[in-house]
Simulated assay, not measured.
Amino acid sequence: MPLFVKIESGIVEKPIFDQYVPAHVEYVRKLIANGHQARTGYWGDMGGGMLLFEAESLEEAQTIVENDPLVKNGCVTYELHQWCIVVE
Results as ranks from 00 to 15, higher is better:
W83G: 11
F4I: 08
M46W: 05
M1L: 11
V28G: 01
S57F: 05
C84S: 10
L3D: 10
E66A: 14
Q82G: 10
V25R: 12
E56N: 10
G47H: 08
Y20W: 12
P2R: 01
P2M: 08
S9F: 05
V87G: 05
I16D: 13
K30G: 13
R39K: 13
W83A: 15
I64Q: 01
I64F: 02
E54W: 02
E79A: 10
H24R: 07
M1G: 14
N73A: 00
M1E: 13
I16N: 09
A23G: 06
E60Q: 15
L51F: 06
T40I: 13
D45P: 03
S57M: 07
A55E: 05
L51G: 00
V5T: 05
A55R: 05
E60T: 12
F4S: 07
D45A: 05
L51H: 00
L3R: 15
K30A: 14
P2T: 07
M46P: 01
Q37W: 08
Q19N: 04
W43T: 09
I11D: 04
V86L: 15
Y78N: 07
F4H: 05
M50W: 04
A38L: 03
Y27I: 05
M1Q: 14
V76N: 00
L70H: 03
L52C: 06
C84Q: 13
V87P: 01
L52E: 06
Q37N: 12
D68H: 07
G41Y: 15
R29P: 05
E79C: 03
A61C: 08
W83Q: 06
I85K: 15
N67F: 02
E13Y: 04
